[in-house]
């Protein structure tokens, strides 16, 4: 292991690090929005939208991100839709993440006991009121562990962006290896970089899960 090689590569890795974080953040935020809308369409059985949501989840969950990215980046131009690599990457991550987030929300809503819904109805709450005061607050709390797992999963998936040459962390490392043949050094930095992002995040999310669980359900 040659530390000067590592030191000299740090500017490139720092840039890749921030790009990974930035694209992850945008993609995850988008996934959460898509997931929330899709799960509500399913929960309230909105006609038409609900079937659309089911088809979307089916496709998104049963195909790899790599193929989704290729389809968006190389396939869609055949239909006249040309997107930059970065935009394709973010859209791909949202397409994948949206279904994972939707399923996390749905499992949270389904975890609410029948009794909670009935006592809400017995008090005269409308469906919208029931959603706002009972289903959403409790369902969100119950879905936090699954949402947290998805956040970690999606950050790791950004490593696949390298196939469409987005200069994020993995792409930076593979490029440097291609140029200078120092695989040990660059892979070491790469693993450390992911650890710097994911270890504190995973500890933080576990803490959050506990807080939310206790705050809402008391156990």
């Amino acid at each position: 292991m040659d530390w000067t090689v590592i030191a000299r590569s740090l500017p490139q890795f720092t840039a890749g690090f921030w790009l990974t974080l930035k694209l992850s953040a945008i993609g995850i935020l988008g996934s959460l929005i898509v997931g929330a809308l899709v799960s509500l369409a399913q929960y309230f059985k909105l006609p038409g939208l609900r079937q659309l949501a089911t088809v979307y989840i089916e496709i998104s969950r049963n195909t790899p991100l790599l193929v989704q990215l290729f389809f968006i980046y190389y396939g869609l131009p055949g239909l006249g839709v040309k997107l930059s690599a970065t935009v394709s990457g973010v859209f791909g991550l949202m397409f994948l993440g949206g279904s994972y987030m939707a399923e996390a929300f749905t499992s949270g809503y389904n975890a609410i006991s029948k009794g909670q819904l009935e006592s809400g109805r017995a008090l005269g709450l409308t469906n919208v009121q029931l959603a706002r005061y009972v289903v959403v607050p409790q369902g969100l709390a119950a879905s936090v562990p699954a949402l947290a797992a998805n956040v970690i999963f999606l950050i790791k998936e950004t490593s696949i962006f390298t196939v469409i040459a987005i200069p994020e962390l993995t792409n930076t490392a593979l490029d440097l290896i291609g140029l200078y043949y120092r695989s040990n050094e660059y892979l070491f930095v790469l693993v450390v970089a992911y650890a710097i992002i994911l270890i504190p995040l995973s500890v933080g999310l576990t803490w959050l899960e506990r807080r939310v669980r206790y705050g809402t359900f008391g156990n």
Partner: peptide, 22 residues
């Protein structure tokens, strides 16, 4: 348009493998 069809088929092939298991 060829790329569209190739990646489309790929989508379908992965879907055929994974969906029944899901």
């Amino acid at each position: 348009a060829f790329a569209f069809w190739v990646y489309g088929i790929m989508f379908i092939m992965y879907y055929i493998l994974c969906a029944p298991l899901s």
